[in-house]
């Protein structure tokens, strides 16, 4: 039973992630001077998965989302990019969840910053230069704000969605 539930959870949450990513890609970029900065709405789903189900499910949802979004967008570089950011942010978020000291909002902000860091590092590897790090100060500030926003939404979801909808009685 447990494996079936895991399969269902990963499938549904991946679908949600893709939907949010797709909707977000339809929006115009928020700041013209950092055109690749995005809110990261799919982080809502990934962080929620991490909190409710754990690292395995979180990594799977994040990985599938990166892979499928990369294929949909027709830009294979997107996969490497978002995977690097995704792995770093999931690792940091999971570490902070296990530490148990910080609020969901701060965890989300930290995850956002490490996502930006991962993407800049990947851009640096792909272009073979350290120049992408020039974008890091703006990106860090923007990611922190975006992370606070998405973290607030995760906090609402965690505190408002009834427990019985997530776990069965014997879990």
């Amino acid at each position: 039973m447990k494996n079936k539930k895991r399969l269902a959870v990963v499938a549904i949450f991946t679908a949600l992630c893709l939907l949010l990513s797709y909707l977000e890609s339809l929006l115009p970029s928020i700041f013209p001077f950092i055109p690749f900065a995005k809110l990261g709405l799919s982080n809502i789903v990934i962080l929620y998965t991490l909190i409710c189900f754990g690292i395995g499910e979180g990594i799977l949802v994040m990985g599938f989302k990166c892979l499928i979004m990369g294929l949909i967008s027709g830009n294979p570089f997107m996969i490497l990019y978002s995977l690097m950011g995704g792995i770093l942010s999931v690792a940091v978020e999971f570490f902070l969840i296990k530490l148990g000291k910080n609020s969901i909002i701060a965890i989300s902000a930290a995850g956002g910053i490490f996502h930006a860091l991962g993407q800049v590092a990947m851009a640096s590897i792909l272009t073979g230069s350290s120049s992408p790090f020039v974008y890091l100060p703006h990106l860090t500030i923007f990611s922190a704000i975006a992370g606070i926003f998405t973290g607030f939404l995760v906090w609402i979801l965690v505190t408002r969605i009834p427990e019985k909808l997530i776990y069965s009685k014997n879990e």
Partner: peptide, 10 residues
Amino acid sequence: AIVCVPKTIT
């Protein structure tokens, strides 16, 4: 710097 990742141009 201006970085274009898909084209690997900096």
